[in-house]
Design a protein around this nucleic acid. Structure first.
Length: 301
DNA sequence: TTCCCGTTGG
DNA sequence: CCAACTGGAA
């Protein structure tokens, strides 16, 4: 059963579907796209990546830019802290890795905003390092195909080891992207086994287990997240704003706006003056131009 | 309304 | 372990 052969054949025509897969893999482009893809659907990233890379063509250019430019270029991708962390990751790379992203996943994972998934994705896609980039799509595909169960029903370590064995060691980057595509498009929570290239050897097919999945999530309307997002959005199109104007435009209480502003300041997205931090209506803030505190080295080069 | 589903921090 | 983080698509 050459499952990987069927998988790669299925993937080949799909490869050109997204801009971050075209041409030779570039570590910087891979990092930017993978960070953008954290929690954000591929079609939206596809639209945002080009303009971002045009504005910041290299990791050095990104590192040299003011943070406010980076947050503006981030656009409406959401989770603006990712933009701040990516900016910081670029600065760390310039400072401690001479502007070159390291191929070693363990070193990549030290960068702000780069966790186990993103480190493996960059290492495998940009450098050909044989590591599996395990996101929930990959987990779902592997649990079903190899164990005939949904991922909740499989021991984490066993699943991890099985994925490592399954990984195509000659083409880890292509394999990772193929499995992720398969999980997103075919082996979805409600699987479409009729069009799946792995159906032949799959242990899950026909077992048709109903999936439990509940995972309720907090309401977005009226949340802090919504307020934080609205404040950053308003600041993107103006140099500065007062607490009271923000309260007026968002329709939220002044002390709520002040609390959100303090959190944004802590995250390095916004720079608030003392009056704004104190919650005064006339207090002013703007998008941050610099990280809130300097780079804190945690490793050596 | 619900779903999306990685990283960080508590 | 769990909650916070955003905004759009299904």
């Amino acid at each position: 059963m050459d499952a990987n052969g069927a998988l790669l054949r299925w993937y080949r025509p799909r490869r050109a579907a997204y801009p971050w897969r075209t041409g030779a893999p570039d570590p910087y482009r891979t990092l930017v796209s993978e960070v953008m893809l954290q929690q954000t659907q591929a079609p939206r990233v596809a639209a945002a990546l080009g303009p971002f890379l045009a504005r910041f063509p290299s990791i050095a250019a990104l590192a040299a830019a003011p943070r406010s430019d980076v947050v503006r270029a981030w656009g409406a991708l959401g989770y603006n802290r990712r933009a701040a962390r990516l900016h910081e990751a670029a600065r760390v790379t310039v400072r401690y890795h001479a502007g070159r992203l390291p191929p070693d996943p363990a070193q990549l994972q030290v960068l702000p905003g780069v966790g186990p998934y993103t480190a493996s994705a960059v290492a495998s896609i940009a450098f050909g390092v044989p590591v599996a980039a395990v996101d929930t799509n990959v987990r779902r595909v592997a649990a079903r195909f190899l164990f005939g169960a949904n991922p909740e029903g499989v021991d984490r370590t066993q699943l991890r080891e099985a994925i490592d064995r399954w990984l195509h060691r000659r083409e880890p980057g292509t394999w990772n992207q193929a499995v992720m595509d398969l999980g997103r498009l075919v082996c979805r929570p409600a699987p479409r086994c009729d069009v799946c290239p792995l159906a032949a050897g799959c242990r899950f097919r026909a077992s048709s287990r109903p999936r439990p999945r509940a995972r309720s999530q907090p309401a977005f309307r009226g949340s802090w997240r919504e307020l934080r997002g609205a404040i950053v959005r308003l600041l993107r199109s103006r140099p500065s704003a007062t607490l009271s104007s923000l309260a007026g435009r968002t329709g939220r209480a002044l002390h709520d706006v002040a609390a959100a502003v303090r959190a944004l300041d802590r995250d390095g997205l916004v720079r608030a003056g003392p009056a704004a931090l104190a919650g005064r209506p006339s207090g002013r803030l703007r998008l941050a131009d610099e990280p809130r505190s300097g780079i804190v080295p945690t490793g050596t080069s």
